[in-house]
Amino acid sequence: MHRKPLLNLLLNHQPADENEQRMLEQTIQFVQNHADCFERHLQIGHVTGSAWIVSPDRQKVVLLHHAKLDRWFQPGGHADGDPDVLAVALREAEEETGLLDLNVIGPGIFDVDVHTIPARQNEPEHLHYDIRFLLEAATDHPFIRTRETKDVRWVAYGEIESLTSEKSILRMKNKVIAKN
């Protein structure tokens, strides 16, 4: 079963709080019930992969200003049929930031989030079941700009709240701070 590796990762993930626990349970149920969970054509929702990219000193994180949603997020995107969500997170991080020397930190999932994507053009409102991995990159590599982003930058943890109040972003920030 192509979903088994992801289900194993999900079953071994330790959520940070009750909210993430609920989203983890939702994600497990979604993956178990939808063989096409990695496909964008599944209109109720689909699995996505994201990267929380930290600096070697763990004092900064890469955030990008999403052009369509006009909000700050971590790099990430659609699986487009790929059941290897870590590979998806790495690919999306490279495509959206230009960072090539990304190192995976830890053996499993860093964070799980379920969030609503608003309806746009030919796409109905749907859910993203986002599987997030902790990565590290050097801060001296230049970023690229893409049509999907308005800005990409290293953000110190103390500055994150000036860009976003997104609960999942703040949860991931707090996870890294707690590990240091």
Rank of each mutant, 00 (worst) to 15 (best):
I144F: 07
K167T: 15
A93V: 12
D140M: 09
L170P: 06
L99S: 06
F143V: 10
L127N: 13
T149F: 06
G106S: 04
E148H: 14
P124H: 09
T116D: 11
R147K: 14
I105G: 00
I169A: 02
F110L: 08
I169T: 15
G106W: 07
R153N: 08
A156P: 05
V88K: 05
R147L: 06
H141W: 10
E95S: 09
G106E: 07
I131R: 05
L127W: 06
Y129G: 03
E166S: 12
A89S: 11
E125M: 12
V112R: 06
L127S: 11
N103H: 14
K167F: 13
A87I: 01
T97V: 09
E166Y: 15
S162M: 10
G158Y: 00
F143K: 07
D151A: 15
A119K: 14
T139H: 10
R91C: 03
A89Q: 03
A93T: 11
T164I: 10
I144R: 11
E92M: 02
F110R: 04
Y129V: 06
A87G: 02
R91H: 12
D113N: 14
R91N: 12
Y129Q: 07
H126I: 06
I109Q: 01
L99W: 02
E159G: 00
E96I: 05
S162V: 06
E95C: 00
V152S: 07
H141M: 12
S162A: 15
R91V: 07
H128V: 01
W154T: 02
R145I: 03
A156S: 14
H126E: 02
I144W: 02
R91Y: 10
V152M: 05
S165D: 13
I105V: 15
R153Q: 15
V152G: 04
A119H: 09
I131A: 02
G158E: 13
L100S: 13
I169F: 08
L135C: 05
D111R: 01
N122C: 06
L163A: 08
N122Y: 08
K150P: 05
L102W: 01
Q121I: 10
D113S: 15
I117Y: 01
I160Q: 03
L102T: 07
L90G: 02
D151Q: 15
A89K: 03
I131W: 00
K167Y: 14
A138F: 04
I131Q: 08
H128K: 10
Q121V: 11
R120E: 12
E148V: 00
W154A: 06
P124L: 04
Q121C: 03
V155H: 04
N122A: 10
H128E: 10
R145M: 13
A156Q: 12
E161I: 14
D113M: 08
